[in-house]
Write a protein that binds this DNA or RNA. Structure first.
Length: 198
DNA sequence: CTTCCGATCTTCT
DNA sequence: GAAGATCGGAAGC
């Protein structure tokens, strides 16, 4: 997607990302997945956002230019990836929650499986599973996803009509920011992550 | 399908 | 010192 795509309202960007492709690596290391579920975070005014209490060492990328990846470590063992939106200085980002792996499915499976077989629909079903399938870790924090030569990039895909987009409360967010209906997913898609009580 | 629990460690108060 | 934008396994329906 072009850089201008990210220079809009964070919810507009989130909706527009459904159906888009996220790609990592190249050649034998290529993995591509189509986004089926995302979540919007609105910076300093959003109680559920990492940027709610201002700029810190971890969330610095959120305050930077749009079209970059904001990758953070959580729960002592998981990486999660966001795409930063504009304008610069406003700390808005879209969390990539789930996707359907299209290309590089063998590599994605090898990265995800730890002894037990995993169904195709579960390969990138959830934000931390998605980063494992793509091979994304903290070293990719801040990379430009609009650059074709980047290790992580986003490409235009199927446009999802409004009628096929489900809107609901965010997952895993507690407190005042939780009920905010800023979670977007493709209606009925089997790769959309399940509900987990807070 | 749902609920409960432990794992594991960085970040910020 | 506590909480966290989670996951996988086990157990219950």
């Amino acid at each position: 997607m072009p850089a201008a795509f990210y220079e809009r309202d964070v919810r507009t960007v989130a909706r527009g990302l459904l159906g888009a492709w996220v790609a990592s690596g190249e050649g034998d290391g290529l993995v591509e997945l189509q986004l089926t579920e995302v979540e919007a975070y609105a910076g300093e005014t959003d109680p559920g956002s990492h940027a709610y209490r201002g700029r810190t060492r971890r969330n610095a990328t959120m305050f930077g230019p749009p079209g970059r990846a904001y990758v953070y470590f959580t729960y002592g063992m998981h990486w999660c990836a966001n795409l930063v939106c504009a304008p610069e200085g406003t700390a808005r980002a879209v969390l990539l929650r789930a996707g359907a792996v299209g290309r590089g499915i063998e590599l994605a499976r090898a990265r995800r499986e730890r002894g037990v077989a995993i169904r195709d629909r579960d390969l990138a079903r959830g934000p931390a599973r998605l980063t494992v399938a793509l091979g994304v870790t903290g070293t990719l924090d801040g990379v430009d996803v609009t650059d074709p030569g980047s290790p992580l990039r986003v490409l235009a895909g199927t446009r999802v009509p409004r009628a096929r987009v489900a809107v609901g409360p965010r997952v895993g967010v507690r407190g005042a920011g939780a009920p905010t209906p800023w979670r977007f997913s493709i209606l009925g898609d089997p790769t959309v992550s399940g509900y987990r009580p807070g």
